[in-house]
Write a protein that binds this DNA or RNA. Structure first.
Length: 951
RNA sequence: GGGCGUAUAGCUCAGCGGGAGAGCGCCUCGUUGACAUCGAGGAGGUCACAAGUUCAAUCCUUGUUACGCCCACCA
């Protein structure tokens, strides 16, 4: 016998062990012979990660599909694994070192990386156990790690091939620099946030005291300002970058400055005797209507300026070090400034490295933090009288500083301000790699669900920038590039190969230095769908399970991961004919999980809901079911724990339904043949079951998990529990042994099928029920049982039971409205019943009496005087209530019903009187409206008669 | 600035070119041997606003308003 309550806390680990011992989720486990494969690769969680709501949703949805397909007999592989998560992991171990007062540099690279591996072995991957608790049916024996030997081999293969194809290159470029982690990051890892900032306005004096006439005009060309100036006005939000200015740019059509283009002006900062001069140039970039229309060009610290500088051969002077402090290297400022002046004079731009060696930070600012330097520079310029001024409220001239919202870039992990920095980095030619990936979606070989995400995908892919793949970290795949004594680069799969290549190049053996950088973590993640299957080796797994089927992900990593997997997959994976093969045919993008008010969960807001706590409180199945039923496409999931409690109750309901069955001798595993069912109530529930099977199957196939869960919920609670089991009660307590036997077999069958239908959503409880409801053993675990198929649709049984349900519901409704005591059994008189109704009343006599609390049923007897009356089809039913009933209340009740019918009749007849409706609407719609009108009129007629009878 | 999305019951959300739905909450009643993590009944909505298309619009189109998200180099 089942316990009175389901104890998920003990059941879940027990069931998990059962699956584990049976190897139930090994690739292909439970598959039919020659079954089609079904593959999902898990989005690899970070090795540092622990389960959050996003994971819970993501993996619940994958598990639903995987369990569903496994039960359908497919050859299923759900490939698990973890990501080495470069920055995140290095950060964790660095923090541990810091606690002991150590820094990784003291330890050295090799030792530090060893420490990380140690950490990984001891504390990494806790998320796997959490995923197992969630019920994730991955093939855990195939666990992979992006830093594994095998996957590292794939990384090498890809890097070297792309390099040799010219799709990976190295160069000095302006990149996003994270001063906290001291590494370049990709533009995706930068979050632009609006912050309060200032815009300062400064005067750049013209060289040699030159002046010009500055004229401003309004839209009509009327002069609004005319004055003689000896400076050009520049606005900036980042005064510290002025030190590295290479030019001032104005728009070529800007008449205000036309007369001074080509002149030199002076950067108003630094020691007076060495103030640098820079040229005034023209470029299309400055917007004449913004600010003064003149822009200072600091090529090494701003992405726009960088492009202007490149176009105009303006030198890019780097001002900061890797910590984003002002440079403190090289010769004193005076020498460097002189060198910069020499460049201006000569008009010859030296090579990048020469320019990069020039440190234009004045001695007094060297080594300062960039923000401190900013304050000092502003103060110095103000003191010098070179700020543009305006009059304040009291009429004093004060420096012109605007308070302004500015977009500032922050590192998504470090949360410090990102600095555009000119450094040597490795890049992948994303534009070339993106082309086939764009075409694949365009041509429908890869499909996004919901489709609307394709727009986002196209927008990004079509504007893709070179992907900076090098990171100045120690944890990760080290870039397989070696440099010869003269800087020649050798990219090979091993140091030996590089040595060989170098020897051939130089004609002798030389000492090589390896590039210290590692690859962006997403570089290895991009190979996940094939590297986990053994590529570059030709493995059986690769052959069987690639292409994978569905990639399930949150929208936040479409760019980071999905797009890059598509680029890499299409580039490296080919079919027998050499055609590219997509890594997956479908990308299912699920929503973000938010708190119940719709706010993004974050630690700082303190609104994070921990899925592990929810599993502790409500059980895993309740959490999973909730996530599934709320996962409507294209919408965020707002999670309210009240919902989880509700779906835990749903589980309890199923548990109790099973207990009811047990108490009434319901038998399982008998090989019950649905076709043999004779009782209407059985044929009805089998019809409803068939409908549920079709609905749920279709919904999961279409990724409509919320529809699937809703269908299951309705079938179990509103059909099986509310009506089917209730209707069986009189049979179980009755005398008809044949009927009882059929009911016991059918109910057993229905419950067994129900467990199967619910298993993808609630795997633990259903597996438990599957095992506990049979003497001996089931032929297989539920997770390997055959997915149900529809048996039949019996229209007549359906009509009959729906009639019965209406009858009982209406009687209950009248009783409640008339305040009849629940325990009181009433007689019932039926007038105007058809032959069919009479037969139905006989069939369901016991059910009606039990469920509607009816004492006797008299067909065609004399109409009782004081009765409540209800109309059901052609029949009028009287509940004699002499002495019990408030006649006024009954008249009011009938009147209300009549009013509702009047309204409906008016609406319908109006519609049908409209010739254009009758002429244009489909015949079936017209007919349907006619039927409804006829029904309403018939019913109204009877209600009217009933009212008349009330006097 | 561009793109996308959302506005339906008190709350959280489904739905859909032809009769407004669910869960929770609320009200009334109920300890009938599966279940109070329950049962029965009930109240509650101009489907954001405006115009258009259509025989017919909550649904399609356009506009408006509000909110949310993503992308973006205005110094």
């Amino acid at each position: 016998m089942l316990e009175k309550n389901y104890d998920f806390a003990t059941a879940e680990p027990r069931i998990a062990k059962l699956w584990d011992e049976a190897d139930a989720f090994a690739a292909g486990s439970g598959a039919k012979p020659d079954a089609d494969p079904f593959t999902i690769v898990i989005p690899p969680p970070n090795v540092t990660g622990s389960l959050h709501m996003g994971h819970a949703l993501n993996n619940t949805l994958q598990d639903i599909m995987v369990r569903f397909e496994r039960m359908r007999g497919k050859n299923v592989l759900w490939q698990p694994g973890m990501d080495h998560a470069g920055i995140a992991t290095q950060m964790v171990v660095e923090r541990q070192l810091a606690e002991k007062g150590q820094h990784r540099r003291e330890l050295g690279r090799e030792k530090f990386v060893e420490k990380i591996w140690e950490w990984k072995e001891q504390s990494g991957g806790v998320i796997f156990n959490q995923l197992k608790r969630l019920g994730a049916s991955c093939d855990w024996s195939r666990e992979r790690f992006t830093m594994d030997e095998g996957l590292s081999k794939a990384v090498l293969e890809v890097f070297v091939s792309l390099y040799k194809e010219g799709l990976i290159y190295r160069g000095k470029r302006l990149v996003n620099w994270d001063p906290k982690f001291e590494t370049a990051i990709s533009d995706l890892e930068v979050e632009n946030t609006e912050v309060d900032g200032h815009m300062w306005h400064f005067k750049y004096p013209l060289a040699d005291g030159k002046t010009y006439e500055y004229v401003e005009k309004d839209a009509d060309g009327k002069v609004t300002l005319r004055e003689t100036r000896d400076y050009i006005s520049i606005a900036t939000t980042r005064p510290e970058t002025m030190l590295g200015d290479g030019a001032v740019a104005v728009h070529p059509d800007d008449e205000r400055y036309a007369s001074i283009v080509g002149e030199l002006c002076e950067i108003p900062v630094g020691p007076k005797e060495h103030r640098r001069l820079i040229p005034i140039i023209t470029d299309d970039y400055p917007d004449p209507d913004f600010g003064s229309g003149a822009v200072k060009i600091t090529g090494a610290h701003d992405f726009n300026d960088y492009m202007v500088a490149k176009r105009n051969n303006i030198p890019c002077y780097r001002l900061m070090d890797i910590k984003a402090a002002m440079r403190d290297d090289g010769a004193p400022y005076a020498e460097n400034a002189a060198q910069a002046m020499a460049i201006i004079k000569s008009g010859q731009l030296p090579d990048e490295n020469t320019v990069d060696a020039i440190n234009l930070v004045p001695d007094e600012y060297r080594g300062l933090d960039r923000f401190e330097a900013r304050n000092r520079i502003v103060a110095d310029i103000n003191a010098d009288g070179l700020a543009v001024t305006i009059k304040d409220d009291e009429g004093n001239e004060v420096p012109f500083v605007e308070n302004k919202k500015i977009m500032q870039p922050f590192g998504d992990r470090s949360h410090v301000v990102i600095e555009p920095m000119l450094t040597d980095q490795w890049f992948a030619d994303a534009e070339t790699l993106a082309k086939p990936a764009i075409a694949s979606v365009r041509e429908g070989r890869t499909n996004f669900v919901p489709k609307t995400w394709e727009n986002t995908y196209f927008h990004w892919m079509e504007n893709i920038q070179p992907w900076c793949i090098s990171r100045q970290l120690w944890w990760g795949h080290r870039i397989p590039a070696w440099y010869g004594p003269d800087g020649t680069t050798f990219v090979e799969k091993s140091e030996g190969d590089a040595q060989g290549a170098a020897e051939r190049y130089y004609g002798k053996s030389v000492e090589l230095t390896r590039d210290p950088d590692v690859l962006d973590t997403w570089f290895s993640s991009a190979l996940w769908p094939f590297s986990t299957l053994g590529w570059p080796d030709k493995t059986k797994e690769l052959d069987t399970y690639y292409q994978t089927d569905v990639l399930v992900t949150g929208l936040d990593i479409i760019f980071f991961w999905v797009a890059r997997m598509m680029m890499m997959g299409l580039h490296f994976m080919k079919d027998a004919d050499g055609n590219p093969v997509e890594p997956f045919h479908t990308v299912y993008v699920h929503a973000l999980v938010r708190d119940k008010h719709g706010a993004k969960m974050s630690k700082s807001k303190g609104n994070v809901i921990d899925p592990l706590e929810l599993m502790d409180e409500y059980g895993t199945d309740a959490l999973r079911f909730t996530l599934a039923i709320m996962a409507a496409q294209g919408r965020d999931v707002k999670l309210d724990t009240a919902r989880i409690a509700g779906y835990r109750n749903f589980g309890t309901k199923l548990w109790n339904a099973t207990r009811f069955a047990e108490m009434n001798g319901v038998v399982r595993g008998t090989g019950f043949d649905p076709e043999s069912a004779k009782l209407t109530v059985n044929r009805w529930i089998l019809t409803e079951l068939s409908r549920a099977v079709d609905d749920i199957t279709f919904a999961i196939e279409k990724f409509r998990f919320n529809d699937a869960a809703s269908s299951a919920y309705r079938f179990v609670w509103n059909q099986t529990c509310d009506w089917y089991l209730e209707l069986l009660k009189p049979i179980f307590s009755g005398e008809d042994e044949a009927a009882k036997k059929e009911a016991q077999a059918c109910a057993g069958y229905v419950l067994d099928q129900t467990y199967k239908l619910l298993h993808p959503f609630m795997p633990f409880m259903t597996e438990e029920l599957w095992a506990d409801t049979i003497e001996g053993e089931r032929p297989s675990l539920l997770c390997h049982a055959d997915w149900p198929e529809a048996v039949f649709f019996d229209r007549e049984a359906n009509d009959e039971i729906n009639w019965l349900i209406s009858l009982v519901s209406e009687i209950r409704s009248v009783r409640a409205e008339m305040n009849i005591k629940p325990g009181l059994k009433l007689p019932m008189v039926v007038i105007g019943a058809s032959e069919q109704t009479v037969a139905r009343l006989a069939t369901h006599d016991a059910a009606i009496k039990t469920l509607a609390r009816i004492e006797t049923i008299d067909v065609g007897a004399e109409v009782p005087k004081a009765s409540a009356q209800l109309v059901l089809g052609e029949t009028t039913i009287y509940l004699p209530l002499e002495g019990l009933i408030d006649l006024g209340a009954e008249v009011a009740r009938l009147g209300k019903e009549q009013g509702a019918l009047d309204k409906e009749i008016k609406q319908l007849s109006g519609k049908l009187a409209n010739e254009r409706f009758v002429a244009n609407a489909p015949a079936e719609v017209v007919q349907e409206n006619r039927d409804r009108l006829a029904n309403a009129e018939a019913k109204r007629h009877k209600i009217t008669a009933a009212l008349e009878r009330m006097g």
